[in-house]
Measured scan of single mutants.
Amino acid sequence: ETQAGIKEEIRRQEFLLNSLHRDLQGGIKDLSKEERLWEVQRILTALKRKLR
């Protein structure tokens, strides 16, 4: 995994995270989306740690 590859994956995950946040802010309670949001946040945290 290169730095560029990790950064690209971070961009993808952040896009997905923002999309999930928008969907959930629409007021629709969706447990699967909430679980996915937490999963994406965990992935992002792990990726950012790899960059250090």
Results as ranks from 00 to 15, higher is better:
E1R: 07
E1H: 10
E1P: 06
E1D: 12
E1G: 08
E1V: 09
T2L: 08
T2H: 08
T2C: 14
T2P: 05
T2S: 08
T2M: 09
Q3S: 07
Q3L: 15
Q3Y: 11
Q3N: 07
Q3C: 15
Q3M: 14
Q3G: 04
A4V: 08
A4D: 09
A4I: 12
A4C: 10
A4M: 07
A4N: 07
A4Y: 08
A4L: 08
A4K: 09
A4S: 08
G5D: 13
G5E: 14
G5N: 10
G5C: 15
G5Y: 14
G5L: 14
G5I: 12
G5W: 15
I6Y: 02
I6K: 01
I6V: 03
K7V: 10
K7I: 14
K7M: 15
K7Q: 12
K7S: 05
K7A: 11
K7H: 08
E8Q: 08
E8N: 06
E8M: 07
E8I: 07
E9T: 03
E9I: 03
E9V: 04
E9D: 05
E9F: 05
E9S: 04
I10K: 01
I10V: 02
I10Q: 01
I10P: 00
I10L: 02
I10G: 01
I10E: 01
I10M: 02
R11L: 07
R11Q: 05
R11I: 07
R11W: 04
R11S: 04
R12T: 03
R12I: 07
R12D: 03
R12S: 03
Q13Y: 15
Q13D: 02
Q13A: 13
Q13I: 15
Q13G: 03
Q13T: 12
Q13R: 02
Q13M: 15
E14A: 04
E14K: 05
E14T: 09
E14P: 00
F15W: 09
F15H: 15
F15E: 15
F15D: 15
F15L: 14
F15R: 14
L16I: 14
L16Y: 06
L16W: 04
L16E: 06
L17G: 01
L17V: 06
L17N: 02
L17T: 01
L17I: 05
L17K: 04
L17D: 01
L17W: 11
L17S: 01
L17R: 06
N18H: 12
N18D: 13
N18R: 14
N18L: 12
N18Q: 14
N18M: 14
S19V: 10
S19E: 14
S19N: 07
S19M: 14
S19H: 05
L20W: 01
L20G: 00
L20I: 07
L20R: 00
L20S: 00
L20Y: 02
L20F: 02
H21G: 04
H21M: 15
H21N: 08
H21V: 15
H21F: 14
H21D: 04
H21Q: 14
H21S: 11
R22P: 02
R22N: 09
R22G: 05
R22S: 07
D23N: 04
D23I: 07
D23H: 05
D23W: 08
D23L: 10
L24M: 08
L24A: 04
L24E: 03
L24D: 02
Q25H: 12
Q25C: 15
Q25N: 07
Q25F: 06
Q25E: 11
G26H: 09
G26L: 13
G26A: 10
G26R: 07
G26I: 08
G27H: 06
G27P: 09
G27N: 08
G27F: 15
G27K: 03
G27D: 08
G27M: 04
G27Y: 04
I28N: 10
I28E: 10
K29Y: 13
K29F: 15
K29M: 08
K29I: 13
K29C: 13
K29V: 11
K29Q: 10
K29D: 08
K29P: 09
D30V: 03
D30R: 01
D30T: 03
D30W: 03
D30G: 03
D30P: 02
L31Y: 09
L31I: 12
L31V: 13
L31A: 14
L31F: 09
L31S: 12
S32G: 10
S32T: 09
S32N: 12
S32A: 14
S32L: 13
S32F: 11
K33H: 07
K33V: 13
K33W: 12
K33Y: 10
K33F: 10
E34I: 15
E34P: 02
E34D: 04
E34Y: 15
E34F: 15
E34A: 08
E35V: 09
E35R: 14
E35A: 12
E35G: 04
E35C: 13
E35K: 14
R36P: 01
R36M: 13
R36E: 09
R36W: 05
L37E: 01
L37K: 03
L37H: 06
L37C: 08
L37W: 06
W38A: 14
W38F: 11
W38G: 07
W38Y: 11
W38M: 14
W38I: 14
W38D: 10
W38K: 14
W38E: 10
E39Q: 08
E39I: 05
E39C: 05
E39W: 06
E39L: 04
E39R: 04
V40E: 02
V40A: 06
V40W: 02
V40K: 01
V40R: 01
Q41K: 11
Q41M: 14
Q41A: 07
Q41E: 10
Q41D: 03
Q41P: 00
Q41I: 15
Q41T: 09
Q41S: 07
R42A: 08
R42L: 07
R42H: 04
R42V: 05
R42W: 05
R42F: 04
R42S: 06
R42D: 03
R42Q: 11
I43K: 07
I43Q: 07
I43G: 02
I43H: 06
I43T: 10
I43E: 06
I43C: 05
I43R: 09
L44Y: 01
L44K: 00
L44W: 00
L44E: 00
L44Q: 00
L44H: 00
L44A: 00
L44V: 04
T45M: 10
T45N: 11
T45V: 12
T45R: 13
T45E: 14
T45D: 13
T45P: 00
A46I: 11
A46E: 14
A46R: 07
A46V: 08
A46K: 06
A46F: 09
L47M: 12
L47S: 00
L47F: 02
L47T: 00
L47E: 00
L47N: 00
L47V: 00
K48V: 05
K48S: 02
K48Q: 06
K48E: 02
K48Y: 15
K48N: 05
K48M: 08
K48L: 11
R49Y: 05
R49Q: 13
R49E: 13
R49N: 11
R49S: 11
R49G: 04
R49D: 12
R49C: 11
R49M: 10
R49H: 08
K50G: 02
K50E: 07
K50L: 13
K50F: 04
K50R: 08
L51R: 01
L51W: 03
L51V: 02
L51S: 01
L51A: 02
L51E: 01
R52V: 11
R52I: 13
R52Q: 13
R52M: 12
R52K: 11
R52E: 13
R52W: 11
